[in-house]
Nucleic acid binder design. Structure first.
Length: 372
RNA sequence: AGAGGCACUGUUUGCAG
């Protein structure tokens, strides 16, 4: 039984989910461990539907399978379902509480995450790290710093998370200070340092670090790629892109955006067309390429052709109309949107002000729930 | 002896910077 379960894990880790499922189906007996192993096999390979079916069919749930399912739901943005599952759990341990914390943080619900962190019965280093990363990833830099200062125990992950928060804030010096003082560094830590150089335009340092790294992965290559594109160095970016062994959505999108930022929409479109598969962010990037380069009609058509749209897609169109002073279109879009975030409100604010409706702009401003 | 939680890269936010 154990051997078979190990097999499922191994197969799933190499992306052979269907093989894993065949092994699972052929097992004479299964225990809770093998059920959970199969569940995470689906989850790790992005098969939420299968994971749900399996979860529904499980003879007995355990805290393991429930936590795994909770995380899977949250990663798909199904935070309400994740919360319901959490509430229905018969027992919860530190891991499931932390999973719930992360579920909120991943869905940008930082206050809820905070509440979980404060109310959970006990916290270990992972919980602290999760809260720290939650702050950092949601742009709550001061909160991150404060929490970091309060931590009585820190490991490599805590240090890397804090370094990353500094990097995001453009504070190269502090990032480097943490990095240099780290007792041990993982590839992720190195990538974080690389990213700090990239974001602050220190190309030479980025390059030196990149080539000095003992090992590198796709994230390192993508980061180096964005170091070049962020500084407008398309030729170097192209050459690096050509030397890459593998590419993911991010690599392609970085190139697409680079062209768009130089006003080279045709080149962006070429990149887009060369992509074998596209995710929503790459569609949005293409949409934005048209929108910010004055091809609003083309953007509109693309928007209409998209199978899936998120808040960002809508904002791109809204901002395009707002920028071009088309108040009516902006307003229509705004009314059609399900949700309005800061970006959408700002776009409307700017549209009204541009058209001389200052008082109305003021009234929008007063109605905004969040401001920055 | 086998299963669940944490860190790194891309897409939207102005006539100011």
């Amino acid at each position: 039984l154990v051997t078979w379960t190990v097999m499922i894990n191994a197969l799933a880790q190499h992306g052979h989910v269907d093989e894993a499922k065949r092994v699972f189906d052929s097992m004479r007996e299964r225990d809770r461990v093998s059920w959970t192993a199969m569940l995470t096999a689906f989850v790790d390979n992005g098969r939420l539907g299968d994971a749900r079916n399996l979860f529904a069919k499980m003879p007995e749930r355990s805290i393991f399978s429930e936590t795994a399912m909770l995380t899977a739901l949250a990663r798909e943005g199904l935070i309400d379902e994740a919360k319901n599952l959490f509430d229905s759990m018969l027992e919860r341990d530190m891991i499931s509480w932390t999973a719930m914390l992360v579920a909120y943080a991943d869905n940008k619900m930082i206050e809820e995450a905070e509440l979980v962190f404060r109310t959970m019965p006990e916290r270990d280093l992972v919980s602290w790290n999760a809260m720290l990363a939650g702050y950092a990833q949601n742009g709550q830099f001061d909160e991150a710093k404060r929490l970091f200062a309060r931590m009585r125990e820190k490991n490599m992950i805590s240090l890397t998370a804090m370094a990353s928060a500094y990097a995001q804030n453009g504070d190269l010096e502090s990032t480097k200070k943490i990095f240099d003082r780290m007792p041990e560094r993982s590839l992720v830590s190195w990538n974080t340092m690389l990213s700090a150089y990239a974001q602050t335009g220190h190309i030479e340092e980025a390059k030196a670090l990149f080539y000095a790294m003992r090992e590198s992965n796709l994230v390192s290559w993508n980061t180096m790629l964005s170091a070049y594109t962020a500084s407008g160095n398309i030729p170097e970016a192209r050459s690096l892109f050509a030397r890459m062994k593998e590419w993911d959505f991010i690599s392609w999108t970085v190139m697409l955006v680079a062209y768009s930022q130089q006003g080279l929409v045709e080149e962006s479109k070429q990149v887009f067309d060369e992509m074998q598969e596209r995710d929503l962010a790459s569609w949005n990037a293409m949409l934005s390429a048209y929108a910010i380069n004055g091809h609003i009609e083309t953007a509109r058509n693309l928007f209409g052709a998209m199978e899936e749209r998120d808040q960002i897609s809508w904002n791109i169109m809204l901002c395009a109309h707002s920028r071009s002073g088309n108040l009516e279109n902006a307003k229509n879009l705004f009314d059609l949107m399900r949700e309005h975030d800061l970006v959408s409100w700002n776009a409307m604010l700017s549209a009204y002000s541009q058209n001389g409706h200052l008082e109305y702009a003021k009234s929008i401003f007063d109605r905004m729930q969040e401001r920055d």
